[in-house]
């Protein structure tokens, strides 16, 4: 029988109340969907002294247009990301990823805020948000601050969210000519990725003006492929270009051998999935 170590539980009734409680109680943690945190607590990989349940803070549960940005509340569930027509229209890589994140029952509970804060290198939404160059909004007692995704992950399972702070929102700029895709290979339904690649391109006048590529499960954190992004900028999209970007992905990823496969296989996958994601993202940008 797997049971977490003892902890105190409280149900937050306001965001400020949750933040105050986080500050007051050392080693307290926010719980939302709980589908990563509770398994970790059962294995004693996490032993918070207090859980602050934010599931009643439904003000944090939305996907909406705000000017030239899409804003996603931290408590938005995977199933809502999967079914969002707004996201499918502007950032279809969310749907690509959500179809292969865990399973439909888990997707009913897990949240985008929890996924990003879990900061597991094999988690898909971190790569998705990195590729579309999202910013995250972090709220503390003194107000909010924003952090770009490329500065959000400080290391494995470590994020820019500080003590007494909560990730409250993900914001993504809508830019013209954009297309995006997420490609993943997993051993079986619901498993973590062996490797996954997220790609976004913005095309104007037949030329890639900007690109974002991020890899899951092939390093200690989500890997931003900045070298490949630089290669793509200013170039017309082509199979040869995607091939070169894939070669960079194979070189720049840092997989470890484990039960999901040896290093050379994971490097090969990173390259192939990068190429496929770029191909699909470009087709969507041009359609």
């Amino acid at each position: 029988m797997q049971t977490p170590a003892r902890f105190d539980y409280e149900r937050a009734t306001s965001l400020q109340g949750a933040i105050a409680s986080l500050k007051e109680h050392e080693d307290s943690r926010i719980i939302a969907g709980g589908h990563s945190l509770l398994p970790m607590m059962k294995l004693r990989l996490a032993s918070p002294t207090r859980l602050i349940d934010i599931n009643d803070l439904t003000d944090l549960q939305y996907i909406r247009e705000e000017g030239d940005e899409i804003a996603i509340g931290a408590l938005t569930r995977h199933v809502e990301l999967l079914k969002s027509e707004l996201l499918a229209e502007h950032f279809p890589l969310f749907k690509d990823a959500e179809l292969v994140i865990a399973d439909p029952v888990v997707r009913n509970r897990g949240t985008i805020g929890g996924s990003l804060c879990q900061a597991d290198a094999a988690e898909d939404l971190s790569a998705v948000c990195a590729a579309v160059k999202a910013t995250v909004v972090i709220t503390g007692a003194d107000g909010t601050r924003t952090v770009p995704m490329d500065q959000f992950h400080l290391g494995p399972w470590t994020t820019a969210v500080g003590e007494g702070e909560i990730l409250t929102e993900v914001r993504i700029a809508k830019r013209p000519g954009g297309g995006s895709a997420h490609e993943k290979v997993e051993r079986r339904a619901g498993d973590w990725a062996i490797a996954a690649a997220s790609a976004a391109v913005w095309i104007d006048g037949g030329v890639i003006t900007d690109a974002g590529i991020a890899l899951s499960a092939v390093g200690l954190t989500t890997i931003d492929l900045t070298r490949a992004e630089e290669l793509l900028r200013g170039q017309p999209p082509s199979e040869e270009l995607f091939e070169q970007a894939g070669a960079i992905a194979s070189e720049d990823c840092m997989p470890i051998p484990d039960s999901r496969g040896p290093v050379d296989y994971k490097r090969h996958l990173a390259g192939v999935l990068t190429k496929r994601a770029l191909r699909k993202a470009t087709a969507r940008a041009l359609s």
């Binding site: 709980g34 589908h35 599931n55 399973d103 029952v105 888990v106 509970r109």
Partner: peptide
């Protein structure tokens, strides 16, 4: 399985399937 993998513990919460091994009763 106790790890939210097997689905034997699925119940419905407000009409939605939920793996009851991965939810606190308090929640």
């Amino acid at each position: 399985c106790d790890t939210s993998n097997c689905g034997a513990c699925v119940v419905q919460m407000d009409g939605q399937p939920l793996k009851s091994c991965t939810a606190l009763a308090a929640m």
